[in-house]
Design a protein around this nucleic acid. Structure first.
Lengths: 152, 152
DNA sequence: CGTGAAAGAAAGCGCCA
DNA sequence: TGGCGCTTTCTTTCACG
């Protein structure tokens, strides 16, 4: 693990909100020159702390008005069934994230659909037919706020 | 809503995996010139489909080895209590995302902590004391795979 | 949509306080 | 570490076919 000082945390927090900022403009806000800022960011990337940059897509603008979280409990657990389930669930295009968790459920899925009718189709034809899928519990997303982690 | 052709979807999928690619290198992969690619991306940004770019941070590399999902059921529901809860929960630094959902829970929280001991501290001193928080259910993250949505 | 070209910003170097 | 200056490369943004 690498040692981060206060300035690194400030840069991380600023970049977490908007990764489009250039190192020049970014550094100016904290009294750093462009090369110095760039060196710090590069160090954060090389150390793996910054794993990459991802698009922030607006699902609604793409026509996917419904986001549902599914908690899935497997009927039969074992290494083989875990791998089978993961392989099958990853192949469903509507599934955005697959989280293997410990607790009341075995997996938590984030799923997008055009509307609730479309979601029912996904649920009945894709999810319920998954190998090993037992009970399923759904939560429909109303609103979401993403925040920076405790990176300071 | 804007009309997207096949090429737009290809660009979105490629950018969703790695938003660091420049329009030059990106366009070459699909037989587009650099200005043409740049024009398309700009159109996607202006239409709001691309809402921005975010850092992909490695929580483990930052010393946060534990990620927990909490399903929270409010004891008293009402517009006032919802706003009180949201304001209070947003102020907790360990809380990364706050999702207002419909279903078995009222809110789903994504929380990071240094280890399970640290998580217990957050749970007891931060979460359980939230205004209106009723029952709470936790799932510890084992592994996670993020995928591109059904953007094609 | 493409090419070509020009302006600007960023990446990536060395050197010094 | 940080800052400065430099060169190379990429992106941005024209005009035009």
């Amino acid at each position: 693990m690498i040692a981060l000082d206060d300035t690194d945390h400030k840069l991380l927090r600023a970049l977490a909100e908007d990764a489009d900022q250039g190192s020049g403009a970014l550094g100016r806000r904290f009294g750093l020159s462009q090369p110095a800022t760039w060196r710090r960011i590069r160090r954060l990337e090389e150390s793996g702390i910054i794993a990459g940059r991802r698009l922030d897509l607006d699902a609604e603008a793409l026509g996917f008005g419904v986001t549902v979280f599914l908690g899935v409990k497997l009927a039969t657990k074992g290494r083989v069934s875990l791998e089978d389930f993961e392989r099958a669930v990853t192949a469903i295009p509507e599934v955005q994230t697959v989280e293997h968790v410990l607790g009341m459920y075995d997996y938590r899925l984030r799923i997008v659909a055009r509307d609730l009718t479309d979601f029912e189709r996904v649920l009945r034809r894709r999810i319920m037919t998954l190998p090993g899928a037992g009970s399923v519990e759904a939560n429909v997303l109303l609103s979401e706020e993403r925040r920076r982690g405790p990176l300071g």
